[in-house]
C-alpha cells in the first residue's frame, strides 16, 4: 500500500482525510484507485480527456514523477505520493511595464 497525501483544498472530496492509502503497482494505478474510491475528486485531478491537469504535480517521495517514468513510475509498499497543485503568480504583464 502507498500513502497519497491530499492537499488541503482537495480534502473535501476524500471525507476530509489528510491522506489515503491505496493499492497499485504504479503511480497511475494508485491515483486511479484514489479517484475510484472518491469519484468527486476525479475532475479536480484529470481533464475530460483523462490527462492529469497541467497544474497538478505528482511527487513520489521527493521526486517529480515527470522526471521518473510519469504515471508508469513503479510504486512500492510504504511509498509516499504527494498531490501538489502549483503555486505561482505575479504582477500582470500589462501592469508590469507601467
Amino acid at each position: 500500500m502507498a500513502k497519497i497525501h491530499i492537499p488541503t483544498p482537495l480534502r473535501q472530496y476524500v471525507s476530509k482525510q489528510p491522506s489515503v492509502e491505496v493499492k497499485g503497482s504504479t503511480v497511475g494505478e494508485a491515483l486511479h484507485g484514489l479517484v475510484s474510491q472518491h469519484p468527486d475528486l476525479r475532475r479536480h485531478l484529470y481533464t475530460e480527456e483523462g490527462k492529469l491537469r497541467a497544474f497538478v504535480n505528482i511527487y513520489l517521495n521527493d521526486e517529480d514523477v515527470r522526471y521518473l517514468n510519469k504515471e508508469a513510475t513503479a510504486v512500492e509498499d510504504g511509498d509516499n505520493i504527494s498531490i501538489v497543485p502549483s503555486i505561482a503568480g505575479g504582477t500582470s504583464l500589462a501592469s508590469a511595464g507601467g
Binding site: P7, Y59, D62, D64, S82, S86, I87, A88, T91, A96
Partner: peptide, 15 residues
C-alpha cells in the same frame, strides 16, 4: 521582478 513560482519539490518538503 514580476513573476514568482515555488518549486513543488520545496512544497512537498514544507508539507
Amino acid at each position: 521582478q514580476n513573476r514568482y513560482h515555488i518549486d513543488p519539490g520545496e512544497l512537498v518538503r514544507i508539507q
